[in-house]
Design a protein around this nucleic acid. Structure first.
Lengths: 226, 226
DNA sequence: CATGAAAAAATTGTATACAAAAATCCTTTA
DNA sequence: TAAAGGATTTTTGTATACAATTTTTTCATG
């Protein structure tokens, strides 16, 4: 499948090759993907409209970075939106989705046991994606995925960083609890468990940044905190 | 203030000059704004990423159109998001915002009495915008405004159509009730009143479309319903 | 008169060129 | 050595050119 240029550039950010604050040089990207600057610029502008990239007139575009407050607010908003999806999914899930959810949780159990971080990252996307679909509302789904997209460069960091042992057990258990609530059709419980789950993710992320910041204080700032 | 090209093109859609389903010819836009196709294309792609415009490979971009189901879902999602903003605003509003809200409602009273539709449209944006800010969460605000943006081409139609007497009293009274709840600090009430307000807006919009569709059945379809 | 195919015109997608601005490097001076 | 200033290189923003494709028009045919 020839991914669109837009997706290919987004992937550079989402897989961590380009980090918040990093510059996107148009010519380099053009050379890399074997096209001219024109389509690169169009793709980058689109990603800027999606909030993944920041465009500064007459200066290079950069991967969008959030300061602490912005990250807190982003997670708070995401918590509410994901909670909406979970609540609705609890009421609207069909049989196929229930089966898939059970299967995901089983796989997640295994991933968590094996401490396979890249698989856990993948699983996180699938789990939440399934709930987005289950809400049966294209706009809610769009909003949820756009929100998630924006904070992905940060949440991914936690799973990518070489020498950092992320806690995979907690998110897995939370996923399982949310899944149980959804399968039981308990909308309120699914929603509040989801809010807790996202709040916990923020706390882990903050702890991660505090640790890596402590380690890297001497080195050049890379714009993570704007 | 020289509005950005992106904003200028968006305005064509938002003020109803371009309606859902209408094509955006790159050369015409370029001539109109006195630039070449390059910046036009970049602006249009950005608006596509924002969901206001739809891009079809190798064919003209068109103003995005929703069918009935999509419109229902969009309003349902918007109701929840606006409710979140209203609930939070009820708890977080500061004194300046309380004053401004009271002033807006007073003005709105007058606009409603004068049956000034274009002022009512403007007021609607200001009222909801104030609540978006009052939620004190940039991501929630961004989500709310993006959502609102997407359905604006439709809600605007109601206020613009020449020979259609929109009911300005109902939305005004609802705004007032929401404002009262916000000023009283009642988050739950503000939220549920907001949900009702948006649900009512959808009903009015559907009635409007049913009427105009009944009148215009003979004429060429313009892509309103995809 | 409607239908369908072929030709003509219009439109998009991409590369390239060049001016304007920003970033970098290099030299001079205290 | 550090700082400042200016020249050089890099990078962005926009226009333009052209091929590929779509849309419209024209015209022949049943």
């Amino acid at each position: 499948m020839p991914h669109t240029l837009r997706q290919q550039i987004a992937d550079l950010v989402l897989n961590g090759e380009l980090k918040p604050g990093d510059r996107l040089d148009e010519q380099s990207l053009a050379d890399r993907f074997g096209v001219s600057r024109t389509p690169i610029r169009e793709a980058v502008r689109q990603l800027a409209a999606s909030g993944l990239i920041e465009i500064r007139p007459r200066r290079s575009a950069v991967v969008r970075s959030f300061d602490r407050t912005e990250l807190n607010e982003a997670f708070e908003a995401m918590g509410e939106i994901e909670a909406l999806c979970a609540s609705r999914a609890a009421v609207r899930f069909n049989e196929a989705e229930r089966l898939r959810l059970r299967a995901l949780i089983a796989t997640s159990e295994d991933i968590s046991a094996r401490a396979d971080r890249s698989a856990a990252l993948e699983m996180d996307f699938e789990f939440h994606g399934l709930l987005h679909d289950g809400a049966r509302n294209w706009m809610l789904k769009a909003v949820a995925e756009e929100t998630r997209l924006k904070i992905t460069p940060y949440s991914t960091a936690l799973y990518i960083m070489e020498d950092y042992d992320a806690d995979l057990g907690t998110p897995h258990r939370q996923h399982r609890a949310i899944a149980d609530a959804v399968l039981a059709g308990d909308a309120d419980l699914a929603g509040s468990l989801m809010r807790e789950h996202i709040a916990q993710a923020l706390i882990s992320l903050q702890a991660f940044f505090d640790k890596t910041a402590a380690r890297g204080t001497a080195r050049k700032q890379k714009g993570k905190a704007r």
